[in-house]
Amino acid sequence: MEKIWKETEEAIKAACRPFDVTWELTRRCNLSCCHCYNVKDDTEPSLEDIALAAGRLRRAGTLFVTLTGGELFCRPDILEVLRVVGEAGFAVRILTNGTLIREEHIACLRGICLQEIGISLYGVTSDVHDRITGVAGSFEASSRAVRRLKEAGLPVHIQSTILKENFDSYAAIRRLAQEWGVVCLMDPVVSPRDDGSRDVLAHRLEPSQTRHLYEDYFRHLSFPQEPPERFLCEAGRAMGAVTARGDILPCIQLPVAVGNIFRQEMIDVWRDAPLLKKLRSAAKEDFGACATCPRTNLCRICPGLAFLEDGNIFGPSSTACFAARTWEDYLARGKT
């Protein structure tokens, strides 16, 4: 079975079909997180648009969809949306703050092919969490959602962006997740906002804090001795994204539209878009200084962050460079 899966996984990647798509279904949100990249407005595809897009994603080869926003459960028709997406035959992941989840939502989630539901949590007290979200009571509501979804037997996990504001809480968040019996995913990455504004970057950790987090939290990772077979991730190959406006992106992190799913067939866009072809054929040598970098086996370059932070999709990413240098120092000190 393992051999068959490996062959199938290779076939999925070689086929360059959008097997795994992040799908933004609203830009509305009931919270105002200080670090969020989302620019809130009322943009939201109709149920008919969603059904149209679902059909196009299916024909293009999509199996996994990650539904996100904004805040998904701000949609008053979310039950109908989940039904449409479920009936279209997708395996569904959901990213949400959880504050608006009710019992009727939980019942609906049981009836679809739900793989994961990630709840954003930024602290273990309302002091810390609510200050980040900008909404009093959000910690209690999100915590309640995690516990209720766990009780209901649904595959819930916590996801936490670690900022200056909650750096002192990250170990406690991890302990709280263990107490609740859920996985906790943490990340210090803060992206510029979708409108290009960089003010959110002020919430990023200091370099010393990021180093501390990496060394503590990622200590269990092992890195291959040789560079990976392919320098880039699956953005524009087996992985893609669709925005609330229907724009098709190589990845949710790379906000360069290559088409629009409400006006075009996804399968045609995915096959023909020049940027996607370039991403698929790109090698380390196409990324400027990366061509001669000795740390590529430690590097997890993201072309989206390279574009947003450094202005060039096909160039080094300062975030990836910092992470790779941190790991190199860590390994050199013999703490493997």
Binding site: M1, W5, T8, A11, A15, R17, F19, L63, C113
Partner: peptide, 27 residues
């Protein structure tokens, strides 16, 4: 089962279940 998701990949069928969250390949 209606809650199974699936997709064709080069003539094989990849099936994902909601209940067990496992991936199965039919050939």
């Amino acid at each position: 089962r209606p809650e199974c998701a699936w997709q064709d990949v080069n003539g094989k069928v990849v099936v994902v279940t909601g209940a067990t969250r496992r991936i199965h390949i039919l050939d």
